[in-house]
Design a protein around this nucleic acid. Structure first.
Lengths: 347, 347
DNA sequence: CGGAGTGATGTTAGCGCTAACAATACGTCC
DNA sequence: GGACGTATTGTTAGCGCTAACATCACTCCG
């Protein structure tokens, strides 16, 4: 579909007003040609110091601001990146967005966002299209959902695009925290406390991160020849964690629980408290994400910390590579860090 | 300062490649003039149905996408709004951002963001300037901080700008949730449970929302001629709430606590638990925000819900008004809703 | 001392699009 | 039947900027 030029819809009675000063205006005031001004402004090409000074004074006096549209038109570069963000307050995605924005701004790029309520092939496709209409030079898809991977398979190949948090199978370069390794570490930590096995409250099956975390947990158990209990599945929300917790209450040999995120762990803690199960005395519980609240849960939660600023930085770096024509190819993993707190205090 | 055209910094070896199709290309294929294509694409001006059809086929076949830079250059409108966001995972600001983005996208606008690590006069000024360089048509400042108000006083007047969550004193139109009223409702709710007074864990003094909430609490007590205990001040974080909770433990007549946000309430709950104070049996606790986790705290937290989607919608509406030259002027308040849960269950 | 550099500046030609006006073909109306 | 409105299409002129080339005035060196 093609843009219908919707904004404003002609409703606006354009106040003609004195338009923004242009290169020509500055040039006039400084008594030079517009090209000289352009050279000063862009630091491209030699300009005599005193000329430069005169130009800068005029720029200042007029409050000149380069017209990005004109510049973009002639250079073919908009200086803007697009980010497809999942509309959620989930700690990870939101933090990642800021990480990317920071890195981009430092490099002089602007960032346009387009949020997606529910991840899905079409919604992500629409978001990408919407960003393209804004003439972004490259796109980052924060795509922790499995359908995102499918959407990316159909992604246009004529614009640099990278994903963050996507699965390995994604047909585009991906940066993500090493979920698998993080899950292994928590599981190993719990096992090291002497338990026969670890129960798992998994995230939604269609989230790649949920899969990776589950796989890390499962394989750690399997390698040791331990029993792998059936997972209880939630949807990341505290509520679902609460329900999972209730489902776990009374399971035979319930000694250690690894929840795929901190919010669900909170629900689990709540369910256990209601059932009279004490943490860490009776059962050990660990989460994943290290949300700021985790340290203040009852009890403080053992979890896995992810460095989203680093993720953002690397994601931007990767996109920059691609925009420059390079192809870094491989999946890049950012290490996860185990944070041990009272919820897994040894007894 | 003037843009230095940083992006890419000439590093890129521009692959000349076949450039995007233009109006002229479509016109050529459809056998009409470029203006006719423009009319079809923008639905401006009459076009014979069969001509339109031919044009649309060509558009489709060529994958034509209007060049926004060219359009912006000639119309003087970029179709983009800017949002200055506080780089934090605080529930409110993050939710507001999505609310605005949604409303803007529905109206056909793109959204550029610029995050600010610490609110301050210069940082917000820089962010605004950075957005202006991206040629946004209007700016929303998510400015819950008091310095934001000051920064806005110095804001340029030649671009439509509105704030969300700012104080009444801000020199620009402001949309915000009625913090004052919300705080009154919680306080009244706590008093209705039969307490002589309510203690308050306040937010940072330099946050406008913290002030409004504190004022709502204070005036409710004063009006009833009740004792107004000294506030314990936190910084929104669970940690500070925890410390506030420890400071409250042992206060004489401690029966009801109103925390200025849910995260601090979590810390308070934690401190009380450690001190053997039971909630709600011994003390009633309420928060503010209704973060998704609040329902699963131990115990579930009574709090105040804010409709951020509505805030976003109204904020965008207000900005749209201003961009159209209208001036709605007055401060617009969005109502807050009391959500009663177990942490204030009557005994 | 003249031609080749080099530094500093100017001139020209678009980038792709829309606003404004021009041109043409029809009917309609008196 | 000719003036006139309306529907449809085309032509022209930039928007503000940068790339590419042109123009000078010097300096340098054989």
């Amino acid at each position: 579909m093609v843009d219908r030029a919707k904004p404003g819809e002609q409703t606006r009675t354009a106040p003609p007003g004195p338009r923004q000063p242009s290169l020509a205006d500055v040039a006039g005031m400084a008594g030079v040609s517009h090209m000289t001004v352009s050279r000063v402004v862009n630091e491209s090409g030699p300009v005599r110091p005193e000329t430069r000074e005169r130009v800068l004074v005029a720029v200042q006096k007029l409050g000149y601001r380069p017209n990005t549209a004109a510049r973009a038109l002639v250079t073919g570069r908009s200086g803007t990146l697009g980010v497809v963000a999942l509309e959620s307050n989930l700690y990870g995605p939101a933090s990642t967005l800021y990480g990317i924005e920071n890195a981009a701004r430092e490099a002089g790029y602007g960032v346009a966002i387009c949020s997606v309520t529910r991840p899905g092939r079409t919604s992500i496709g629409d978001a990408v299209e919407s960003l393209r209409r804004q003439a972004v030079e490259g796109i980052v898809v924060i795509a922790p959902h499995i359908t995102a991977g499918r959407a990316l398979a159909a992604a246009p190949s004529d614009i640099p695009l990278v994903a963050v948090g996507g699965g390995e199978s994604a047909p585009v370069p991906v940066i993500s925290v090493d979920q698998y390794d993080g899950a292994r570490r928590v599981t190993e930590h719990l096992l090291a406390l002497g338990h026969r096995t670890v129960w798992h409250v998994a995230g939604p099956e269609d989230w790649l991160e949920a899969r990776d975390r589950e796989r890390g947990w499962r394989e750690t158990l399997e390698e040791r020849g331990l029993r792998v209990p059936a997972v209880v599945r939630g949807d990341w929300s505290p509520r679902s964690g609460y329900e999972a917790g209730r489902a776990l209450v009374g399971k035979r040999g319930l000694k250690a629980v690894f929840s795929a995120n901190d919010q669900m762990a909170l629900g689990v803690l709540r369910a256990f408290t209601e059932a009279g199960i004490r943490v860490p005395e009776d059962v050990h519980v660990a989460g994943f994400d290290d949300v700021p609240e985790a340290e203040y849960f009852t009890p403080p939660l053992t979890t896995v910390r992810q460095d989203f600023i680093e993720v953002g930085r690397r994601t931007f770096g990767l996109l920059e590579d691609r925009m420059a024509g390079g192809d870094a190819g491989a999946r890049r993993l950012v290490a996860a860090e185990l944070v041990v707190r009272e919820s897994t205090a040894s007894r």
